[in-house]
């Protein structure tokens, strides 16, 4: 399966479908975590918000930066 690539506010978001759900923003890897019970993603850089997808998480990180 191909990587999922999109852009948001001029920044490139890539979700690698390598089985590890690696997230990159402008080719830099973002540390992410997955709450397997809640089925939500979060990140140490945005720890108190949860997201249904890595792309949604990436957009929030971009909004915050």
């Amino acid at each position: 399966m191909a990587d999922e690539e999109t852009s948001y506010k001029g920044r490139k978001i890539i979700v690698r479908t390598d089985g590890k759900n690696t997230l990159l923003i402008d080719n830099s890897e973002v540390v992410t975590r997955f709450d397997e019970e809640a089925r939500k993603y979060f990140s140490p850089s945005l720890p108190y918000r949860t997201f249904p997808s890595l792309v949604d998480l990436a957009k929030a990180i971009i909004d915050q930066s």
Partner: peptide, 28 residues
């Protein structure tokens, strides 16, 4: 327990973001 924890942690997250500033980060 699983759903209790998910829901309570969600409420907890909201309090962190309500105070915000440093409380919104892992250095809370």
């Amino acid at each position: 327990f699983g759903q209790f924890r998910i829901n309570l942690e969600g409420v907890h997250n909201g309090i962190h973001m309500w105070v915000a500033g440093h409380m919104g980060l892992m250095v809370s």
